[in-house]
Computed example of a mutant assay.
Amino acid sequence: MIAFLTPLLYSLGPAALLLAMVIVFAETGLLVGFFLPGDSLLFTVGILVATGVIHLPLVLVAACLFGAAAAGDQVGYLLGRRFGPRVFNRNESRLFSRSHAQRAETFFAKHGSKAVILARFVPVVRTFTPVVAGVARMPRRTFTVFNLAGAALWAVGLLVAGYFLGGVPIVATHVELFAIGMVAVSLVPAAAAVVRHKIGARHEADGDSVSVEPLEVLR
């Protein structure tokens, strides 16, 4: 998707910031936004600011994207707090996956309040974690503090990384390739989680088979 978005961002010029804000907000604030390329988008916007395609001050772009990211998580939290478990009991569809929601629940249970920050860097999980925090009735003030910290580290951090790398000629002339590379890097945590889950499930299955054998012998 980022390969499609990059030429569009080029063509929009400064207005590309508005598109980026909508995407960042939707990915973190709407349950249907899990497929959006937040990491690579922020990195790409940073490069486009550095190369003058988006002719706006870096501080302004950073403030706007930070605001969109923080607002998105806050909306997700309010959805979880308002509608509770009904959010996770809805029917499976193309735009909603229970498995994604369950991954976020597991992630939140494992990391607690820190999950609000850490989830920002895990695709799909970052979409559902604010909702899980709302369902779990995490104190609003606590959530807001972690939300703001996470938005700063994620949105501003990736934007600034793209901005400084945008000054490197090879990066500036191959924006799409580096954006796709960011997608690949951002998928590593998710892939690692899947592998760990499969290994854990296999170990549990092996343990069950071992525990059953003595019973079979006694029979």
Rank of each mutant, 00 (worst) to 15 (best):
E176C: 02
P189G: 08
V160Y: 13
L158E: 05
H197M: 13
A172T: 06
S186C: 10
G167D: 08
R202E: 04
I180D: 01
G150P: 12
V194M: 12
R202Y: 05
H203P: 00
N147C: 11
A184C: 07
P169G: 01
A193K: 06
L153M: 15
I180N: 04
L165H: 02
A193C: 00
K198Y: 04
V145M: 12
V160T: 15
A192Q: 00
H174C: 04
A201E: 15
P189F: 08
L158I: 13
V188R: 01
A192H: 02
A152G: 13
Y163K: 09
P189S: 07
F178R: 03
L177D: 11
V183H: 08
L165P: 07
G167K: 05
L153Y: 11
V183L: 12
V171C: 04
A152I: 05
E176G: 00
V171H: 06
K198D: 01
S186V: 10
V156H: 02
F146T: 10
A191I: 05
K198S: 00
R196I: 04
L177T: 14
A201K: 14
R196H: 09
V183M: 13
A190M: 15
V145I: 15
A201Q: 14
T144W: 12
G157R: 11
G162F: 10
G162Y: 11
V194P: 03
A193W: 08
A172Q: 06
T144M: 13
P169R: 01
A179R: 07
E176R: 06
M182D: 08
V160Q: 12
K198V: 02
F178D: 06
A172I: 03
G181V: 10
A179L: 08
A161P: 02
A201M: 12
L158F: 14
H197P: 00
Y163A: 12
A193S: 11
S186W: 07
V183S: 12
W154M: 06
G150I: 06
L165G: 04
V171L: 04
G167R: 11
A155F: 02
V188A: 07
V188Q: 03
F146Q: 04
A155T: 03
V171D: 04
V160M: 13
